[in-house]
């Protein structure tokens, strides 16, 4: 694992960490009704890592994921993505960060209904302004990578849960992002399908060098990661290298 991290970092030893949270807090509501979702998180994730975030409901792991995914901004503290302060960016600038550097995989797949697998995978490329022909070849390539070659014309309703999640992964990787943020990617799947998805994510991490940050409830799935980060009450309770894999 260290090899992979260093491989990326040797290109520029002075490079800022890919993901850097410093004293990040997220507060909802005001005055008496103030709720702390995150209470001063410090977290550094280097390029090429595969990190699993665990923790009970309400521990702030989803809030942390939203901030890392540039969907939300911290109330306090700093979040730097590749050295860029995200807190100071507007909605559209954060959209550009998502479009160019981030891929999302959700528990509920979040595919567009009544839209073919190919069109779903092409979606981020449309917003990037990739011309139609190039878009199609990139999307077909991504679908092949997740093992769905030949299924490009199927609607989500014609695909199994595992296959839908593969389409979602293809949509996440089609823009060749630096990071994939996976929020309970196996939550709706049986263990066999779940393991297939985990194998796919592991392969993407290993072969493509894509940084993967995954929220999960299931210890079995967390075992696939190199690093386990445990959230409790809006704080990082523990942050360890995976003893099984190391």
């Amino acid at each position: 694992m260290t090899e992979r991290v260093s491989k990326k970092n040797t290109e520029d030893p002075q490079a800022a960490p890919l993901i850097h949270l410093e004293g990040v807090s997220k507060i909802y509501g005001q005055g008496e009704a103030k709720v702390y979702a995150l209470r001063g998180i410090d977290l550094v994730i280097q390029s090429g890592e595969f990190a699993a975030i665990m923790g009970p409901s309400g521990s702030g792991k989803s809030t942390a994921m939203n901030i890392i995914g540039c969907l939300d901004t911290p109330t306090e503290g700093h979040y730097r993505f590749g050295g860029v302060e995200v807190g100071g960016l507007g909605r559209d600038q954060r959209a550009l960060l998502r479009r160019n550097f981030l891929g999302f995989v959700f528990q509920g797949y979040n595919l567009l209904a009544r839209t073919s697998a190919l069109d779903n995978v092409e979606l981020p490329l449309i917003y990037k302004g990739v011309p139609a022909a190039k878009r199609k070849s990139m999307a077909l390539e991504a679908l092949a990578k997740v093992g769905l070659a030949g299924r490009e014309s199927h609607d989500p309703s014609q695909l199994s849960g595992g296959q839908q999640q593969r389409v979602a992964i293809a949509r996440a990787i089609v823009t060749r992002p630096d990071v994939i943020l996976a929020d309970e990617p196996t939550g709706n799947l049986d263990s066999a399908r779940g393991e297939e998805i985990m194998d796919l994510l592991t392969a993407l991490n290993r072969d493509e060098g894509i940084t993967i940050i995954m929220v999960t409830h299931e210890p079995d799935m967390a075992e696939y990661a190199d690093r386990l980060i445990r959230f409790v009450d809006g704080r990082v309770e523990s942050d360890v290298q995976n003893p099984v894999r190391n």
Binding site: R91, D92, A95, R99, N100, N110, L123, Y127, K128
Partner: peptide, 9 residues
């Protein structure tokens, strides 16, 4: 979904 994959306002 569209916003998440990077559509601007």
């Amino acid at each position: 979904i569209r916003l998440a994959v990077g559509a601007t306002e």
